[in-house]
């Protein structure tokens, strides 16, 4: 009786597993429908844009709509370049400033170290809303308003980045660094030659989070970048919609497809890193 009962419950359990997995697969497809619609729409001809039923697979691979975006009256390439510039510079900047600071907080002793670190951690609690007004007024005075480089300056460092790299560094052994110190190496050399190579996992996580986050900034960009030529992609999408939507939905979706492409590519190529990174940025406390 015993083994049969166990076999029975095992079979039942397997059946439950399969049902749930099938259900989750169906739900997963539904989750992806908005993206499927967006891509397929970008290939629909303007005349068919509003035709029902909606399509979730591209009817043909005709890049006319993409060409229409690039030749429209909106400086799309300039806007795209702004987004690339902001995201790349912010990412590189954060990798440098955060690692330098993290090295000091994790490996060096100096008076006030822990209180300074604490003050930086407090920064995690302030939303962009509470810093934007003085930054706007200040940028207006020094001529940084309506320039993408202003957005870059704002985000050249982050409390979260410092915290992330410091935590990672503290989990690494410091024997090599101490040995190098004994040999009389300077701190900059130790940092550059010994600590930095060990930090690769933390740095790739930080790089990926920072890039996607910066690519997606909306609130700050909308306040600080008003003219079309200064915009980044998220705020320009709204503009495109206003300009083109009445005429052509497919063209808007072609622009959108280009705008989401870098983040989707990163995600497809480095899914594990992205998920780890984004969740780490959540569990910062």
């Amino acid at each position: 009786m015993g083994p049969i009962l166990i076999m029975k419950t095992k079979a039942a359990k397997r059946w439950i597993d399969r049902t749930i997995i099938t259900f989750m697969a169906a739900l997963g497809v539904v989750m992806l429908l908005p993206f499927a619609w967006l891509f397929s729409m970008s290939f629909r001809s303007p005349a068919e844009a509003y035709k029902m039923p909606p399509s979730f697979l591209p009817p043909s691979l005709d890049f006319k709509n993409y060409w229409a975006v690039l030749t429209s009256s909106i400086p799309f390439l300039q806007i795209y370049w702004n987004s690339v510039e902001v995201a790349v510079l912010v990412t590189l900047g954060q990798l440098v400033t955060c690692t330098l600071a993290a090295f000091a907080f994790a490996r060096l002793t100096f008076p006030g170290r822990d209180s300074i670190f604490f003050v930086m951690l407090v920064g995690l609690m302030f939303p962009a809303q509470v810093t934007i007004i003085p930054i706007y007024l200040g940028f207006a005075q020094v001529g940084l308003l309506n320039r993408p480089i202003g957005l870059v300056l704002m985000y050249l460092t982050s409390s979260f980045g410092v915290f992330l790299v410091r935590q990672f560094m503290r989990s690494q052994p410091k024997a090599l660094e101490e040995a190098a110190l004994m040999d009389g190496a300077g701190y900059l050399k130790i940092f550059y030659r010994i600590s930095l190579p060990q930090l690769r996992p933390a740095l790739s996580a930080l790089g990926i989070i920072t890039f996607t986050q910066t690519w997606n900034y909306y609130f700050q960009a909308r306040v600080l970048l008003e003219p079309q030529r200064a915009m980044t992609l998220p705020i320009a999408m709204d503009l495109l919609r206003g300009y083109l939507a009445s005429g052509n939905l497919s063209v808007v979706m072609a622009a959108m497809s280009m705008a989401v492409l870098p983040v989707i590519l990163i995600f497809l190529l480095a899914q594990k890193l992205v998920i780890e990174g984004v969740t780490m940025s959540g569990i910062k406390n």
Partner: peptide, 19 residues
């Protein structure tokens, strides 16, 4: 599964809201 359920998390709200 991770792809399907996590993709919306990393795409800007500004983009998906338009869709």
């Amino acid at each position: 599964f991770r792809l399907a359920y996590f993709l919306p998390v990393i795409i800007a709200a500004a983009f998906v809201s338009i869709v």
